[in-house]
Design a protein around this nucleic acid. Structure first.
Lengths: 341, 341
DNA sequence: CTGTTAGCGCTTTCAC
DNA sequence: GTGAAAGCGCTAACAG
């Protein structure tokens, strides 16, 4: 393994017989540098294939043109789609992306944050997945001047930019519409309560019933911590109720809906004639089921883009020392009718 | 925005009334440091929440505990699954991951490489997606001492670690088995020829026919650059041939197979009774179709893990200045029977 | 065992 | 306009 050294600013300076500081200034388009010198420097830089060392720059400038993204896991396709949006905007702006996961513990989540902060990322996009009784580590990060952008979950205690999809409204409006169309016997399969998205979707379901004056039956909210529990939960439910007593099944997400779909098919229930089925998220899979799953679209890529733009904005303001007003943008979700409703 | 400074090694040194170098050595477990001093230093470090600045360390050590991963795009779930494997191993070993995409041009692919090299990553995992007439930029990166690991595609010209799934064998063996079972009229929908995975899968198909003494009909290899072309390509094909003339449709990947599935359903062909259908890759979607798609499993996560381990290994050897022998590991693919065959 | 010093590659005052 | 010099936070000879 031969080691070829990268050309540094010193090499340029020597070759051009000027001081490194001049070269640096020329490269950074400093106003007081002779246009001719600038050109000479730039030309040689290109010729010698000079790329500034971001580590050195970062050390000096306290900025690395790097942002971090922390996901709960790498299991859900939704995150990948968000990442795509992030990637797009960040690379357009010449930022690198460092990814992390919270894994399966609060501790890991905290470690991921600290680690990114140590790496001097210029900002962090985070899908916080745990409830921390002491979220001071997050505030510490902000205090270090690293902007934090929270995705898909709002923390009242923390002042920051937020990008969330409007889970509540999406579910609320859609369920209202169904009720108006005469489907009044609706159950909801909810996910883990500690996940705010699940919580909000359930809330949307409940509020819609209330709005339309339908009495809530506690049995009609079926709790599953994981999609693998859906079928047996439904089996339990339908041992108490008949299929005729239900018009529509709403679900925390598309994966839950897929399980429900299988369950219904196994029981020879016609979808949507006997029972309608609604997912949530518009995962790519939802167009491949049969019948194709109706769902509530959650524009993942758009969320990633929006988050990146906000974060970049905050970073820029920070650099200039300007003040900055936080924003929480709710990305619109909407009902997507396919074949299961 | 209050800016709280991070505690540095200097702060520790001052507080402990010793020299920074002693502190540094204590922190790095240098053999010749008094065990007592080490303890004092470490305790204060923990107490003051000291985290070494990776930028400074990187600048000095020429190593950043950071690796880069370059994907062609963020479209295929397969990449996400690979990333999961990479994430697992890398974070176990305290490495950060920087991600990039080749986007849609050779130039971008090259830029991504250069950019990662500039960031002084310790290694790069790359799914090369273009054919570069001049791959010297890759060799340059190796010469800088940055190990390159190629995924899913072999470059004869470049000496490096490779991790590939055995596309050829997976397709070859599966098609042979089908032929043995009496399905002899087999077509193959191939993807872009410039993608080596597609190329190899096609080769597997062809070789299986040859092996079993079946004459190849050029019409039976249907070319599509993208899944969106599959339906019309099939329409064209089946205007020339009847459905009865075909036993089995093999596809470049599961997405292609989904399109074929839709086409067959639209034409009221019973799967697998009239025609069998085989995908490739075992994308998560394949279990949600109806009928469930039979496919050839490609262990994405495992590939990511294996790649990471090899890369880390090379990095470690490099650091110690030891010699290192490259390896190309073929990850086994295998036929996964579900309902479409 | 520990301190002194130089330097990684770059930016940025402060001079002139 | 440009040069000299200090310093970002850390490590690693070289001394003693």
């Amino acid at each position: 393994m031969k080691k070829s050294r990268k050309t540094t600013i010193k090499d340029l300076a020597k070759a051009l017989e000027m001081n490194v500081s001049t070269v640096s200034r020329a490269l950074n388009d400093h106003p007081k540098i002779n246009i001719k010198t600038k050109e000479r420097v730039r030309q040689l830089a290109k010729q010698m294939d000079y790329i500034p060392n971001p580590l050195a720059q970062g050390l000096q400038r306290q900025s690395t043109r790097t942002i971090g993204v922390i996901f709960p896991t790498f299991d859900t396709n939704f995150f990948f789609r968000v990442l795509k949006g992030v990637e797009k905007v960040m690379h357009e702006n010449n930022y690198q992306i460092i990814i992390s996961t919270a894994g399966n513990s609060k501790e890991q989540e905290k470690e991921a944050c600290k680690s990114l902060s140590a790496y001097h990322v210029d900002g962090i996009i985070i899908f916080l997945s745990y409830q921390h009784e002491d979220p001071s580590f997050l505030i510490d990060i902000q205090d270090e001047g690293i902007p934090l952008l929270f995705m898909d979950r709002i923390y009242e205690e923390i002042d920051a930019n937020y990008v969330v999809s409007d889970d509540f409204t999406g579910m609320f409006e859609t369920v209202c519409d169904f009720i108006d169309q005469g489907k009044k016997k609706i159950i909801h399969i909810q996910g883990s309560n500690s996940v705010s998205t699940s919580f909000n979707r359930t809330l949307g379901y409940q509020e819609a019933l209330r709005e339309k004056g339908i009495e809530e039956n506690p049995d009609f909210i079926i709790h599953c911590d994981h999609e693998s529990e859906v079928k047996s939960a439904l089996r339990r439910f339908f041992s108490k109720y008949t299929f005729e007593e239900i018009d529509l099944i709403t679900c925390f997400n598309d994966y839950f809906a897929f399980q429900a779909l299988e369950y219904l098919k196994e029981n020879n229930i016609k979808i949507p004639d006997d029972i309608s089925l609604l997912g949530f998220a518009n995962e790519p899979l939802s167009i491949y089921t049969s019948p194709k799953l109706s769902t509530i679209n959650q524009p993942a890529e758009e969320m990633g883009e929006k988050a990146s733009e906000l974060l970049l904005d905050e970073i820029e303001h920070n650099k200039k020392g300007e003040s900055y007003a936080y924003d929480t943008t709710r990305v619109k979700t909407f009902y997507l009718r396919r074949e299961s409703t």
